[in-house]
């Protein structure tokens, strides 16, 4: 049941003020995005059309705490097919960034490890300018599992076979233990300070 007194009439403006969310109100609810999405085979509740409708209605809390936001593949199928150029892939990204800020502020809880992963990834770029796989795994797994030990166990479980395969092919050796760094690290720091999450 929708309780009108709990709706946030400013929510659609909030989304449209985020980069990528500008075209929200162009949606005419045709469902092309949802029916063509490869994720609906796996997550039957996944419904970008509904997320848009709920956003337009101002159902801020329900939208931002919807775990389905985090199973989007960013594969751009919806964006390519949308007859109204809503740019759904970018739009969902904008909603995810708002959700992430709310979670950081302790106002909602996100039932997905995706934000932890994305942030761990970004931290490597801010520090080194390039992706450092080991650094990413060392940050992601312990945070996801809630302890360093459990994190390392989970990492071993996911990566022991894969790592050995890569090692045998000469793709992952002692060199992979250390980050590849860009020389101009000062500029990377500036980019993330100016444009990254505050």
């Amino acid at each position: 049941m929708i309780k009108t007194w709990e709706l946030d009439p400013n929510f659609k403006e909030e989304i449209m003020n985020e980069r990528g969310g500008e075209h929200l109100t162009a949606c005419f609810q045709c469902s092309t995005c949802t029916l063509g999405c490869p994720i609906i085979d796996y997550v039957p509740t996944y419904n970008p059309r509904k997320i848009i409708q709920m956003s337009l209605l101002g159902m801020r809390k329900e939208v931002l705490s919807n775990p389905d936001l985090w199973v989007c593949l960013i594969c751009q199928t919806c964006t390519a097919r949308c007859p109204q150029d809503v740019r759904i892939s970018d739009l969902l990204g904008a909603i995810r960034r708002i959700a992430d800020k709310e979670a950081e502020a302790g106002k909602i809880k996100i039932e997905s490890s995706r934000p932890i992963f994305d942030k761990a990834f970004q931290h490597q770029l801010a520090k080194y300018g390039r992706l450092y796989d080991m650094g990413l795994a060392k940050e992601y797994y312990p945070k996801r599992e809630g302890s360093f030990f459990k994190g390392m166990m989970a990492m071993m479980n996911d990566y022991k076979d894969f790592g050995m395969r890569m090692f045998k092919k000469g793709k992952m050796g002692p060199k992979a233990m250390f980050p590849e760094k860009v020389k101009d690290l000062a500029v990377m720091k500036k980019i993330f300070e100016e444009m990254g999450e505050k």
Partner: peptide, 12 residues
């Protein structure tokens, strides 16, 4: 430097 891959979602 890295392009941001799929993990940097903020377009700017």
């Amino acid at each position: 430097n890295c392009c941001g891959a799929a993990e940097v979602e903020d377009p700017e």
